[in-house]
Design a protein around this nucleic acid. Sequence first.
DNA 1: CGAATAGTTAGCCGTATGGCTAACCGAATG
DNA 2: CATTCGGTTAGCCATACGGCTAACTATTCG
Lengths: 111, 111
Amino acid sequence: MDTFFGALSDPTRRAVIEALVTGPRPVGELHAPHDIALPTFLKHLKVLEASGLVRSEKKGRVRIVHIEAAPLAEAEAWLHRQRRLWEGRLDRLGALAEQLEREHKSDGDRR
Amino acid sequence: MDTFFGALSDPTRRAVIEALVTGPRPVGELHAPHDIALPTFLKHLKVLEASGLVRSEKKGRVRIVHIEAAPLAEAEAWLHRQRRLWEGRLDRLGALAEQLEREHKSDGDRR
DNA sequence: CGAATAGTTAGCCGTATGGCTAACCGAATG
DNA sequence: CATTCGGTTAGCCATACGGCTAACTATTCG
C-alpha cells in the first residue's frame, strides 16, 4: 500500500491516471501534455506500474497503457473506513464519554 | 494534494491515522507502539500536520494530536471520481465504440 | 528548588526520487 | 534497405526522505 499512495503523491502521475480513466493510451500520447523529457516520464510510468495502478503491453513499437481499477477501490475503501470510524466516534460519544475513555486507557497503560 | 497522498505513503503515518480515528492522543502515546526514535517519529507527525491530515495543540508539556476528517473525504472523493469515470466508460462503451473513439481522437490530434 | 517527564532542535548519514542527456534498439515506412 | 519513429537503457546530478544521536527547553512533581 506504500507504493500505492506514493504513486499518487506526484502530480504528473495523478494526471496520467486522470488521462487513463477515459481509456487506454499509448505512452507517447500520455507524455505529450507534460513538459518533461520522455525518459523522465517513463520513470513515472514505471512507478505507476510497480504500484499496480496501471498495466501496459507492447503492440509493435507502441506501448499501450491502461488503468487498473481494483487498487483505486482498495485505497478508497481504506480512506472511507478511517473516515467512518472517526465520524462514527463523534456520533456515539460526547465530550464526557470521550474523557472517560481516555482516562481509562491511561490507567491501563501505566506500568 | 501532493503532500496529502505523500503523507499516506508511509506505513508509520498511516498507522498514526488509524490510531487517531479512535480519538485524539498525546504524542508519547502515539509514539509508543513504533520502534523508532522519538525525533524521527516527530518528523512523521510534522509531515502529517503539514499535509493537513492532522492538527495538534500543546497543553502544558503534552501535545495532543487529533485527526482532520475533511482531507480524508477529499482524497476519497478524488479516488471515487476516477473509479466512477473508468467504470462508467466500461458501461457505456463496448470494444467497438472504444475503437471509434480512439480513432476519432487520433484524427483530431494530427497536425 | 531539583529531578524526572515530554517534547523539541540541530545535525549527520545513506538511500530514494525526480530531473536531465546521450546513446541505443526494434518496428514501421518511403 | 535507409530512415524515421516510439520507446528504452544507462548514467549523472541535486534534493528530499527516513533513520539516528546528542543536547536543549519547558512542565510538573516530590
